[in-house]
Design a protein around this nucleic acid. Structure first.
Lengths: 222, 222, 222, 222
DNA sequence: CATGAATGAGATTTCATTCAT
DNA sequence: TATGAATGAAATCTCATTCAT
């Protein structure tokens, strides 16, 4: 596969998308290198090999960059979930597969949880209403789609139940992660104090609580 | 007769605590007026009738103020939960009571959710380790206490299960609120787009998902 | 029948001159609409229906546009002055006519004074030497011409005196206008403060001071 | 004379004025070193040994700095003029003295003319209305004062005539300087083209034209 | 203890100008 | 020639935090 060098000017929409992506990549690389805070715009520009002004041609605010990044991650995740419904086994197995997929995704996308946690209190506060709306709409549509696919496979479930469960699942992940994510510099404390009783391990805990959530949701239709 | 001027300096511990509280009150008032972001230190100081520097005598960072505020709220909530266990009815009724208590608390403490949502991505990032540790420790102890009280009333449940469920409950609330809380300026979009399928109403949704979570958790011990 | 699209490129000199003029017109229209500062190149381009880069094919800098505009205005004015000398009356009447012509010109060319005021501190600072030189040379030649015509009519005046007087006249107009031109937003202040003692009205003041200047200049030759 | 080191914090009004002055001094030094454009705020801050933010504590915009500088210069000049009226000789001698004073002042304050030329087209455009008003008011008051002092010495002149003449004098200086001031890089052209007929030398020309102006103004009262 | 001046990092904006296409 | 993407300097603003007084 030939990989042409990036043009110096993004003329058509395709090139513009590529440049936009290169900014996202740069931002991701920097954020990955130091998750203690969002990298500065000037550093993102430098990392992308662009001028600061150019970054602002593609994103109105710094937060818009990271909301776009989160949006991409969500799309990736949703796509994986949708694939699970291609040849769905029983609901129980599906739940297991979903959990595996999820854990896998979180492992491969270590910025997803920090970004998702920042979405409401940080990112959405400094992104123009239209863009936030598009983000929310995209999420909604994916969930809708999944709900429909799910009911095609399991018609006994009412419309909306699967979507609602997905939403709650997402919420639970979000909340759990926030409670169990400790700032890097706090890690020493995690040994020092006996928190381990209740905050043992994010992924184990996630598995447990999701199963509880799903068990409760499905129990009425068994 | 000499009329002493109002004491300008907080000398003893009591006065210091009062001043600290006045800063918290000022911060709360301002944050209540606009939850789109933490108020600035200069405004908090002005609201409290103090100079900017004085605020920093009582809190090392701005985020420390709001973590203290959140800590207070959590203590209030935990105390209410503990009271529920004074004369516990059946686990099912307890769950109902807990939900009522919770909804009630959220209604009366409109800053709790925004603060709790900011805890991990914002507040804990800029508060010194020790303080964050104390906050986490306090939460841990309350949950521990509740778990113990619960098992006194219902010995059939294993140690840690109630605490764990509380933790997950908290996580679910946290995540759900973040997904359903729309910035003020986005409210118009909530009608415009068909999000309502899955995001009907925070409290209704909360009730539903918590019941699912609890159902799933308790089902094995029924 | 094929309908040729409007020619997009200016090929011959005539078309180029027309395009150059359309840029000047666009710039003039925008500057007229807001004299508080030179309009931006992007706006000039938009107004002219061109791309930003195209403007730079016709003018090396933004200031060059406005120096060209000023140059045109000066030529117009000088031509009017030259016409006054076609059939010259007495020097006194000539002075009266000049004043009338001047006032008339300023009324019909509201950008002349703002542009002339910017010439030295702004325009000439960012236009290449050669162009500024041409501008100065043009002015010089016109004044020379007028001086010659004047001495044809009134041989008793020495070479250079009329030209020099014109120069001083121009200087006086320039300075007076700057002192009495108030930014739009300052107009309210002009009533509020008792500036009126000395700053009554540009044109009245101009008439007075020019008469003084000319009286002083001519007195030695009466 | 003891010269105490500058305090690190400007607490009282006197110290604040001193710090403000130190910013003005820094700006003046830089502008003097390169009159081709106003120095940047960051450089002014550095030159003053302050942070950029500190400069903005004392001046709202860069232009405000230079309007303040011009204001100072005007006050200095006006004070010199006022001193001329302490023991006034004949009006004619006074005019000579004024011219000498003026030339002297311009020699010692090489930034006065560039600043004065920028006042209307540049500085006043980016300074808040109130400050511009104060500047104009100050000028007005000085001229008023001079007019009064002049009439004490020479009661035969009507109120306002001297003030008006001063205004016109100022205007003439301003305009003349602008016409004869050539950008540094343009100096070579001044030899190349035969402008010298009409633009011989600013100071000689100034003397000539002012004398004409004054002669014309005074002729009616001789 | 209390104050508020000073700091300085960083976001955002503007915009003239350049230059690849 | 024409375009508009990219540049990059500079202004302005905000604001948490420090620290001299």
């Amino acid at each position: 596969m030939r990989c042409l060098p990036q043009r110096l000017r993004a003329i058509d929409d395709h090139e513009k998308a590529a440049r936009r992506q290169s900014i996202l990549d740069a931002a991701k690389a920097l954020y990955l290198a130091d998750t203690s805070g969002l990298p500065s715009v000037i550093n993102i520009a430098r990392q992308a090999g662009l001028a600061k002004g150019t970054v602002y041609l593609y994103f109105k605010t710094k937060e818009e960059i990271f909301l776009a990044m989160l949006s991409e991650d969500y799309e990736t995740l949703m796509t994986k979930v949708i694939k699970l419904l291609d040849a769905p086994p029983s609901p129980d197995e599906l739940a297991d597969n979903l959990l595996t997929t999820l854990i896998n995704f979180l492992d491969n996308n270590p910025l997803f949880m920090p970004l998702a946690s920042m979405a409401s209190p940080v990112l959405e506060q400094n992104v123009e209403i239209k863009i936030v709306g598009e983000f929310k709409l995209m999420l909604n549509e994916k969930i809708n789609l999944i709900d429909n696919l799910f009911r095609e496979a399991f018609p006994q479930f009412p419309k909306g139940q699967c979507g609602s469960l997905l939403l709650h699942t997402n919420a639970l992940i979000l909340g759990l992660w926030q409670m169990q994510n400790w700032p890097e510099k706090l890690k020493p404390l995690q040994q020092q104090y006996p928190f381990n009783t209740f905050i043992p391990d994010f992924k184990k805990d996630l598995a447990l609580s999701l199963k509880n959530l799903w068990k409760g949701a499905l129990v009425s239709h068994s």
